[in-house]
């Protein structure tokens, strides 16, 4: 009986930390995934630009040869 009361008391007065692990996991997964997406976007844009640069340089060389 005593234990039941003490548990009830603990629940009612919210003694001790609240159970919020789910929100913590959600928070950090959002933080890391946004960071990851941004890194990926920089990487992909960089790769595409490098490809473009290479193609353009090839065209330039070809034009120089044609002349």
């Amino acid at each position: 009986m005593n234990t039941i009361f003490s548990i009830l008391f603990a629940v009612l007065t919210q003694e001790g930390p609240a159970e919020t692990t789910g929100y913590m996991i959600l928070g950090y997964s959002v933080i890391f995934s946004v960071l990851g997406i941004y890194l990926l976007s920089i990487y992909i844009r960089n790769r595409n630009l490098n490809q473009d640069a290479n193609t353009l340089m090839e065209i330039e060389e070809q034009e120089a040869e044609d002349e």
Partner: peptide, 19 residues
Amino acid sequence: PLEAVMGQVQRVFYFHVSA
């Protein structure tokens, strides 16, 4: 340490403020 009232979610605070 684990925060006494809010619990685990308080850990979001560190990276939240840093961001």
